[in-house]
Amino acid sequence: MKVKAVFKGIMKDWVGAAESDFDLKPGASYGDLLREIHLKFGRNLPSGLWNRKRKAFDESVVALVEGSGEKLDELATPLREGMRVDFFLLALGG
């Protein structure tokens, strides 16, 4: 299934790409998407952005499903065909 990851704001600077398309196995989860992202961009990520133990971005990174604004937290959350996931740095305020 096709899923798009979009890196917004400073995430784009850090990951080194504005977006990337992934072809995941049917029934893939959010964790699967993260694994693919890490395989593709892992070498570029600044220290602290990737949590090796959890195999996910640091908790300061927020993943939101485009359109609904649904927040993805659980790695087991199933993804849907054609989904777009936007990644932001949790920096809200001021």
Partner: peptide
């Protein structure tokens, strides 16, 4: 702290798109 880095880089306007 990544959030502090973000504020440093783009100020409080960093949050507009999210």
């Amino acid at each position: 702290d990544l959030t502090s880095k973000g504020f440093s880089e783009y100020g409080t306007l960093i949050s507009m798109d999210m």
